[in-house]
Design a binder for these strands. Structure first.
Length: 249
DNA sequence: ATGGTGGGTAGCCCA
């Protein structure tokens, strides 16, 4: 909570999407968010692992909790902003990391990650309203989205199979990759640095695993996008940093 | 080729 509070005080977004909240819903720190003015909540959590939450200063209506892995893990919550049945849909997702071995025969988690993306793609086929999907996709699609394309080709998060699977999801709805439309390739853009380094800055071994994608019409309403890379250096940081998109709706 | 760190749960698993 200290880094979340710091971020909300500094940036004051209307809406915040969190992934990996790692708590049951009744243990979510509602009071701390309320005290900062974030009085609207959609929390999909479970004990210990996974879990997502969308909190806002403006009214939201929760409308879905999808299980794209078909195994009961809490990895999605969908809300509507601007009134039920109208306005913008905002889908907050935590794609499975996928384990260490990029082979579904040897590593069930990798297969589950691909299956999750396939179900997400079938969902995207049916979207008929302005929608944003944001979160930890656990895939860095472009060569310039990782510190070394060559060295990460066989590392889960940047394998051609994952990138192709994510591309099929993109094609299903013609998503606008807001991050890369605003910070054009090959400009450096990472959102995650491993904890397994004494100093995350040393070698700058980052990856762009976090994304904010919008329906084509939503992409045209973007008025700003940036990341708070400095948050990686805060006290007790997350290994991910916040992405911020500003829209004129 | 290996293990590195951080976190939650429980005597290990996941990221």
């Amino acid at each position: 909570m200290p880094i979340v509070e710091r971020f909300l005080k500094e940036e004051a977004p209307d809406v915040l999407c969190l992934q990996e909240i790692k708590c049951e819903e009744h243990l979510f720190p509602y009071k701390a968010f309320n005290a900062l003015g974030y009085t609207h909540h959609a929390v999909h959590g479970q004990k210990g692992y996974h879990g997502v939450a969308t909190v806002a200063k403006i009214p939201l209506t929760e409308y879905s909790r999808l299980d794209w892995q078909a195994n009961g893990e809490a990895r999605h919550v969908g809300v509507e902003l601007g009134g039920a049945g109208q306005g913008l849909c905002l889908d907050n997702v935590y794609v499975p990391a996928g384990g260490d071995i990029p082979d579904r025969e040897k590593n069930a988690k990798f297969g589950q990650k691909l299956d999750f993306l396939e179900r997400m793609t079938r969902w995207a086929d049916g979207i008929d309203r302005p929608t944003m999907i944001v979160g930890d996709f656990n895939i860095a699609p472009l060569e310039c989205d990782v510190w070394s394309h060559k060295q990460l080709l066989k590392v889960v998060s940047h394998t051609p199979l994952e990138v192709d699977t994510l591309q099929r999801f993109m094609d299903a709805h013609g998503w606008s990759d807001i991050g890369r439309e605003q910070i054009a390739a090959p400009e450096r853009y990472y959102s995650w640095w491993s904890y397994r380094a004494k100093d995350y800055r040393a070698g700058d071994r980052g990856r762009r695993l976090d994304h904010m994608w919008g329906s084509p019409e939503v992409g045209k309403q973007v008025t700003g996008h940036r990341i708070r890379e400095d948050a990686r250096g805060w006290e007790k940081p997350s290994d991910h940093v916040p992405l911020i998109t500003e829209l004129s709706l």
